[in-house]
């Protein structure tokens, strides 16, 4: 078990290094470059060169990567020339807000998905099953931004139930103090996630319903509700751990869109704003944070699965 964890963690570290190398090289190969973006279109070639030299941008790219990486390990993510602030402090300011939004969405998604997925499996091929499957397809095929727009249009502009803009408070607690502003952003993420979760849960429950232990439970006189919710659901939630871990990148990508539509002051909105003005250090930092979150999500999914399911062999 320990060996499995160590090997899996080592793999994750290697992939993280690869991710940072890929992201770094990608963003440094872009035309224009930092000097042009900072100094503006009228800077002379000499000015560009001296800027590049001052910030070490004229060194070979692998050497630059080495310097950047060692800085990174010291907690220095670089400096945003556009916002005049260190990238680490920018992310520290925005990341908690994005996490709050995503965690809320994740929790609500699971709570909503469980009864739907279980109901679909128990009453499979019923009208309920087919309509849920169909709706799942619809939401899965709807771009998040369009879904968000519809939510704003119907529930904010037409019905006036919720504000069209997310809370603008500067602290996490300030954002949570305005729950009505969070309803629509969270709903847009939830609708996307629920369609995924129910599909997995449905097939997991179906797989479990035909197992021997279900027959045993019925044989000893357990009620249907008890069998489904005490025995089958517990076992069906094990694969959900994997899906939760893997859904992290989907959520973060979704929140890139959602934050933009609802003007939610998180990392996604910051990314969009800085992408338009070519603020590379900030873009690099955020991309890296999301990439590492993805790797960590995968790792947690694997480890969680191994911990919960004793049948998994730690090979």
């Amino acid at each position: 078990m320990t060996l499995f964890l160590a090997r899996r963690a080592a793999q994750a570290v290697v992939v993280m290094l690869l991710v940072s190398l890929i992201v770094f090289v990608l963003l440094h190969l872009l035309p224009g470059g930092t000097a042009r973006a900072v100094l503006g279109p009228r800077a002379s070639a000499a000015q560009l060169r001296s800027f590049d030299h001052e910030y070490g941008l004229d060194k070979p790219i692998l050497e630059q990567f080495g310097i950047w990486l060692s800085q990174l390990l010291h907690g220095n993510l670089g400096y945003s020339y556009k916002l005049n602030q260190s990238v680490a402090s920018l992310i520290a300011e925005k990341l908690p807000k994005t996490l709050v939004l995503n965690l809320l969405a994740l929790v609500v998604s699971v709570v909503v998905a469980i009864p739907i997925g279980v109901g679909q499996a128990v009453r499979r091929n019923s009208v309920f099953d087919y309509s849920a499957t169909f709706l799942g397809f619809v939401f899965y095929s709807t771009p998040v931004f369009f879904l968000s727009l519809m939510l704003v249009l119907w529930f904010s502009l037409d019905l006036g139930w919720f504000p069209a803009q997310a809370p603008q408070a500067s602290t996490v607690s300030g954002i949570l103090a305005e729950p009505s502003g969070l309803v629509l952003p969270v709903a847009s993420l939830v609708l996307l996630q629920v369609s995924l979760f129910t599909r997995y849960l449905r097939s997991a429950v179906l797989d479990n319903l035909v197992q021997d232990y279900v027959r045993t439970a019925y044989a000893k006189g357990a009620s249907r509700t008890r069998v489904v919710y005490r025995h089958v659901l517990r076992n069906s939630l094990i694969p959900m751990v994997t899906i939760l871990g893997l859904s992290l990148p989907i959520l973060l990508a979704g929140s890139l869109v959602t934050e933009q539509v609802f003007n939610y002051p998180g990392m996604g909105l910051l990314f969009y704003q800085e992408a338009v003005v070519a603020d590379y250090p900030t873009l690099l930092g955020i991309t890296l944070v999301v990439g590492i979150a993805t790797v960590v999500g995968n790792l947690l999914a694997d480890v969680g699965y191994a911990l919960l399911d004793p049948r998994v062999r730690y090979a």
Binding site: L18, V23, L256, G291, T294
Partner: peptide, 22 residues
């Protein structure tokens, strides 16, 4: 395959957004 793993962890939507501004 390690290269694929690494690329898979790169948030595609974020990078695409940057690339299409360029």
């Amino acid at each position: 395959m390690r290269l694929v793993d690494g690329l898979l962890a790169v948030p595609a939507l974020f990078v695409l957004l940057v690339l299409s501004t360029m």
